[in-house]
Design a protein around this nucleic acid. Structure first.
Lengths: 416, 416
DNA sequence: CATACTTTGTTCGTTATCTGAACAAAGTGG
DNA sequence: CCACTTTGTTCAGATAACGAACAAAGTATG
């Protein structure tokens, strides 16, 4: 009778503390993939009895299972606990300027299904929303088996996102959307929680969990696509700034005498190395030297990349010039934020060393940290899927931080 | 007999938890200045009985005292607990390029004594260390009464500080110091813990606790002195970067065609608006127009500031040009970090609106956030004392985070 | 292969933190 | 003046995590 009254004083009383402890054990099992009760007790500095109790609670959730025994350490062999990566699935949606992509992942960030479709997202919000739903349905149909619960939906959007108002989109970047994402239709349609963040931030998150940023607490992710954006992992977390607009590397001032940008500045990085700028520059060079792989057709950013990979001198010159401008911006980032690594993502990242080499050269020349540039500037490991995977990772991160977000069937701990 | 064995399993067992709880209550009392046990219980969601026990423990430390009763809320009047700001003192030392300053503060950041002396710090490490000790002694003699324990010593240095190796100083900034601070002599001499950090970081910390950054979790502090540096409060904490070199705003690239800087870059902010650059620019303008307050003597940064404050056109032009260059850097900081505020410190901050007005103008023109510039760019409230006060604040912050750092006489809880 | 020793995981009594109820002291308000 | 509040303390009770004991299952070693 008395215990029914519990739960008012949540912070310091048993239930909440126990949940936090249980969550920290769950995170440990996730991190280690396989681990025994005794090993958890040693590493978490808990008693084996406490760990046993907590693990009993985790087993009934289905997120953890016993899978045989491990090697003996000189005594009885331990029972191996394994995190069940397939206990749930997550939808990660990337909304680009001209496409929608959807990744269905398991709880280890593995892509179970991938859907991608071009669409004039910028000018057709309603169609874009419908397409997101359609691609999500396809992905679920293709990659989910019936036992797997949908933990949540993450969406990467090409606009700054204010954490206090996540459905708001920038009217400058996406005028036709009138400042509203209207993405809650996804949550309603699929009956799962929805999380939204900026695409570069989520690219950074994806690289932190699964790619070139693993184990690094401070790094910058730079997305080189139609626009130029960056996401920053600071002290292990995405840094969003006071109003969610941190990481606008595209509007760093590179050349005060350069062309005007929509942001009002002259010579923004975006005006110098955004896709339109590179196309324009290629056209300019082609006029002088028509003997190029690019000649004949109208150049696009993709064809320039292809030509550069094929060794075309004009395309290479465009890339080298872009790398030099980017190098100044990277030097700025190094000076202001001192990341341990800089990771390049977005379409241009596929250029690999063609882009990296002149970039490292520029950064070395322009920083005290010349040793840094050699080792710590890299391309994305996740490539064009980083955004969608990062969106799914945002959901996973939230669930691992508080397991109630795993959206489990029945807590059912009370029954026993 | 058995309880003697306690203490091995520190993390989840009683003693450590109780200490953390007690510390959080202490921080609350510090924050509120005056508060009753019942009020603590309500806000911290603890029972009154628990709070009573914890407060009993705090009373014997001398950090908290009962000071009469407060207004009734319709029942018995509460006993008011007050944090004892005078229970200890802290030394904050600022090491500049050409001076040493020492602030003795209480536990509320109030300056009890202030010592300042010019000295060729850059070229005379041994003399600088001796001077620090001397000024600390003077400050203690002048401002401490015998009952007050020295909690610790903080030092602000004009060099990046790697948190993993805090006694290391940059050999580029301070070649004669050979990369070693040798500041542990201070700790030994005064028998108190020593904490070291970069001067701009500590200026930011001081403004966060006592000045223009109160209540703001994300802001930038820019120090305009002989050199140009910045400190960044991110998510409520000083951001130091992967190796402690974050915040080198002085080496942002402003003009790629500008003069070479020691960092290898062209047109660094430091080469454009550092004191030597402004002096050179003033001399240049004087050659054309000798009818200036500055004419006659060799200009210095101080005399330029004085002349600008007196309305001299040449000095004003120097300031306006500096503000425009600074504006580009501030726009970069806004784009990358999205701070809620930008605070200007260092010697030039005394120019106030003379500097702010052209700066706001430039930033407005060069950012999407024109509304931002109007309100959120301010000058320091602490002025030239920010560095030393911040150094003391670093010690205070550490002690409030873990009260064992208060360096108390006897824990003496065991006795009762 | 028998014996000594380890390690694992569970059970169960113990410990100690924090709680809640009860109470005296001290107040408000009609 | 009496009913009702609020504060701060005391004290018994709930309970989260622990430690000791134990059975099960292993290794090492003669």
């Amino acid at each position: 009778m008395k215990s029914v009254l519990a739960g008012k004083r949540a912070r310091h009383s048993g239930a909440a503390r126990r949940r936090r402890l249980s969550d920290s054990v769950l995170r440990r099992i996730w991190r280690e993939r396989e681990i025994s009760r005794a090993e958890i007790a040693r590493r978490a500095e808990l008693s084996r009895s406490t760990v046993s109790e907590i693990v009993d609670g985790l087993l009934v959730t289905g997120l953890v299972a016993e899978v045989g025994t491990g090697p003996s350490r000189g005594g009885r062999r331990p029972i191996v606990l394994r995190f069940q990566d397939g206990a749930g699935v997550i939808l990660g949606v990337e909304m680009g300027a001209t496409h929608i992509a959807v990744a269905l992942t398991d709880l280890r960030g593995r892509v179970l299904a991938w859907e991608h479709r071009y669409h004039p997202v910028r000018t057709d919000p309603a169609g874009a929303r419908a397409l997101m739903i359609e691609l999500c349905q396809c992905a679920l149909a293709a990659g989910r088996d019936d036992s797997q619960r949908l933990v949540g939906i993450g969406v990467a959007v090409p606009s700054p996102v204010d954490p206090t108002n996540p459905d708001h989109l920038s009217e400058l970047v996406l005028p036709a959307w009138h400042g509203r994402g209207g993405l809650e239709v996804l949550a309603q349609r699929f009956g799962a929680p929805l999380l939204v963040d900026n695409d570069a931030n989520l690219g950074a998150l994806a690289e932190q969990w699964w790619g070139a940023g693993r184990g690094i607490d401070d790094f910058a992710y730079i997305k080189l696509a139609t626009g130029i954006g960056s996401g920053h992992i600071i002290a292990g977390s995405i840094y969003r700034g006071a109003k969610g607009t941190a990481g606008e590397i595209g509007h760093l001032a590179i050349d005060p005498h350069g062309a005007l940008c929509i942001c009002g500045l002259r010579g923004c990085l975006a005006t110098l190395i955004g896709a339109p700028a590179l196309v324009a520059r290629a056209r300019e060079l082609l006029a002088r030297d028509p003997d190029s792989l690019l000649a004949g057709t109208e150049p696009t950013i993709t064809s320039i990349e292809d030509a550069a990979l094929a060794g075309d001198p004009i395309a290479l010159q465009v890339v080298v010039e872009a790398a030099e401008n980017l190098g100044i911006a990277v030097a700025d980032v190094l000076n202001l934020l001192n990341p341990a690594r800089v990771i390049l993502g977005g379409g241009m990242a596929r250029l690999g060393e063609i882009l990296l080499e002149p970039l490292r050269e520029t950064v070395s020349r322009r920083t005290l940290l010349s040793a840094f540039a050699d080792s710590a500037i890299q391309v994305s490991e996740l490539g064009p899927r980083a955004g969608a995977i990062g969106a799914a990772t945002l959901v996973l991160q939230s669930a691992l931080a508080d397991s109630r977000h795993f959206n489990l069937a029945t807590p059912s701990a009370e029954v026993a």
